[in-house]
């Protein structure tokens, strides 16, 4: 029959395009990552030899190495602090919204999610003026606050999603069994929405970990982060050190992605038993 032939051709075509698109998604990483092991400072294949010299530059005791490690340290401190702040605030707000009796719920929710859709440059520019007025510009608290703001919508989305799968009768059951509201929250609610909270926290961390625009606007020159060094590296002269640092950055996010995937599966498994 002709229709099945057409169908077969169509699905083959879909498969071919799909694999090509998948290749397109993966190719920059697959191609660029090996270049960080190139013995020569060129970006071409075949590579003349393999070496770890670019990584040595990052981990070495030279001035550059110290700078990279400082940037790494800054990124971790800012990212972890911003993530904690965003997670606490975002989780609490999601719990409040889920209770369903919040006045002005729609507007408040829209406001708290707005960092997701406002172009970052617009926020960064506004923040420069405001943060300068309140003496937060060029400070770590200032960067942490701004990064946390960009991360809170992700926390709200993931926590709200896990609350949607949460049976409120479980809270009632806990209370009817004589446990105080706080005990019920700790022993019943939190373990069940925990994976959602954790992946929200990871999202918030990665948001800060990768953030460049707000950092460029708000940070003083001595406040280097990994993305900021990469930005400078790309803008000035593309060197294999930048590729090596990118690879490291990529590995960190890859690990975090695996962690969230594990959390997501765990969450799905628990939800499946509800």
């Amino acid at each position: 029959m002709t229709t099945t032939a057409i169908e077969r051709i169509a699905s083959t075509l879909v498969a071919v395009i799909a694999i090509a698109v998948l290749f397109f998604l993966m190719v920059p990483l697959l191609v660029a990552v090996p270049l960080s092991f190139n013995a020569e400072p060129y970006f071409s294949y075949p590579m003349p030899g393999l070496s770890l010299r670019w990584y040595q530059e990052i981990f070495g005791s030279t001035v550059k190495g110290i700078e990279w490690r400082n940037a790494f340290f800054n990124s971790v401190v800012i990212g972890v602090s911003a993530s904690i702040l965003a997670t606490v605030l975002g989780t609490s707000a999601s719990l409040g919204i889920a209770r369903g009796d919040l006045p002005f719920k729609q507007s408040l929710q829209a406001m708290m999610l707005s960092p997701l859709v406002i172009p970052v440059v617009v926020y960064a520019t506004g923040a420069v003026y405001f943060f300068a007025r309140v003496s937060l510009i060029g400070t770590y608290p200032g960067l942490i606050v701004a990064h946390a703001l960009l991360g809170t919508p992700f926390v709200m989305i993931t926590v709200t999603a896990s609350l949607a799968g949460y049976d409120r009768n479980l809270t009632r059951a806990g209370l009817s069994l004589g446990a105080s509201p706080w005990r019920v929250f700790r022993k019943v609610s939190l373990p069940l929405i925990g994976p959602g909270v954790a992946s929200g926290a990871l999202f918030a961390f990665v948001t800060s970990w990768d953030e460049i625009i707000v950092t460029l606007f708000l940070a003083y020159p001595n406040q280097q982060t990994i993305p900021r060094r990469l930005w400078a590296g790309v803008n000035e002269q593309l060197s294999p050190v930048v590729i090596a640092a990118s690879t490291l950055l990529f590995l960190v996010t890859l690990c975090l992605l695996v962690v969230t995937e594990v959390l997501r599966r765990r969450n799905a498994r628990l939800a499946g038993t509800l």
């Binding site: 059951a173 004589g178 373990p191 069940l192 038993t273």
Partner: peptide
């Protein structure tokens, strides 16, 4: 101190 049984059991899945 009142016991309660819920429609969908509300057993703690974890």
């Amino acid at each position: 101190g009142v016991g309660m049984v819920f429609q969908n059991y509300a057993l703690f899945p974890h």
